[in-house]
């Protein structure tokens, strides 16, 4: 998620700053050096983020197997996709995973930030502790938690050895609970970042608001919940977008933790795509799945513009 999160947070900032940076700083003039200097950007923007996506979409309408071809077969790949249990379960899984990790991350992250905001002397120490998992790769995260969740030698057995013999905590071995285990691992890795963003947001709140609330006799927890939280839209939006991109791309941690199992209980769309273009040699099918993955991102971006447009409209009215 490290890679993923970087992209997300940057993008959030990009959207946030887009409105304020619209004023042109300089007259646009064609400078050959400028175009030459940005050739890699032109190649990436056009070559990768436009042309590659178009090819993905095109191949999703073909019967490409090991190698891509242009034998168009209409919507057949999509029909097959949506009648494949493996895919449908993947979509359900990513939805459950997404809701749980985003809600969990937000709640836990905000709670941590609030507790960190109580003039804690060891703030730097706690911050380092909450944030260090984020520096480690999701593969590492997945492998560690897989070991911790080991039914015979992990937490479950350790607690049983301490005397609580009926203790059960080995989520990864059961189909019904495996996904929750992955969610927990993901939270462990990423909550610190949400906390850091939320804490920055908290610190950005006008100190006079706090004074006013104290004079008004609002209890601290109510101030955090009803006054300060709604004031942190920016931080919440950033944390949210960051986690969303992480969810859509979820791959590494599942591969390391469960390889999609047991059964298909932790299958994810990202794995589905990769499997179809590698082991299962069915590029057309893989591309159809990839195209479906693009949809929620498009929806999110559309939503973002809608919100911005609405805000601009309201600002114009006031």
């Amino acid at each position: 998620m490290t890679q993923v999160a970087q992209g997300g947070e940057g993008a959030a900032a990009g959207f946030a700053s887009a409105a304020t940076r619209r004023k042109p700083r300089l007259r646009k003039r064609l400078n050959v050096q400028s175009v030459l200097g940005t050739t890699p950007m032109i190649a990436t923007a056009v070559g990768v983020f436009i042309i590659c996506i178009i090819f993905s979409i095109i191949w999703s309408f073909t019967n490409s197997k090991l190698f891509p071809n242009f034998n168009f077969i209409g919507w057949a790949q999509y029909q097959r996709l949506w009648s494949t249990d493996r895919w449908i379960i993947s979509v359900q899984n990513v939805a459950v995973f997404g809701v749980l990790s985003i809600v969990g991350g937000m709640v836990f992250g905000y709670l941590l930030a609030v507790f960190m905001d109580q003039r804690i002397k060891q703030e730097d120490l706690f911050r380092s502790i909450f944030l260090y998992p984020f520096a480690m790769s999701l593969v590492v995260t997945g492998l560690v938690w897989q070991w911790m969740f080991d039914p015979n030698l992990g937490i479950q057995s350790a607690v049983r050895q301490m005397g609580w013999t009926s203790f059960e905590f080995a989520p990864l071995v059961k189909q019904e609970t495996a996904l929750y285990g992955v969610v927990l691992g993901g939270l462990w890795n990423g909550v610190g970042v949400t906390m850091a963003i939320m804490l920055a947001g908290l610190r950005g709140v006008d100190s006079e608001i706090w004074k006013a609330a104290k004079v008004d006799g609002i209890p601290t927890w109510k101030t955090y919940l009803f006054v300060v939280l709604p004031m942190m839209r920016g931080a919440i939006a950033t944390a949210f977008i960051l986690q969303c991109t992480g969810v859509v791309r979820v791959f590494d941690i599942v591969i390391a933790m469960t390889q999609g199992g047991p059964g298909v209980s932790t299958q994810m769309p990202a794995i589905y795509v990769i499997q179809h273009i590698t082991d299962r040699v069915n590029v057309g099918q893989g591309m159809a799945a990839a195209t479906m993955m693009l949809l929620p991102v498009m929806v999110l971006i559309g939503l973002q513009y809608l919100v911005r447009w609405n805000a601009n409209r309201r600002a114009g009215r006031a």
Partner: peptide, 19 residues
């Protein structure tokens, strides 16, 4: 506590609850 002191306070930044 501030609330028990029988005071009301007005701030430079207004400090209204924005939402």
């Amino acid at each position: 506590e501030p609330k028990d002191r029988g005071i009301g306070m007005v701030f430079q930044s207004y400090a209204l609850y924005p939402q």
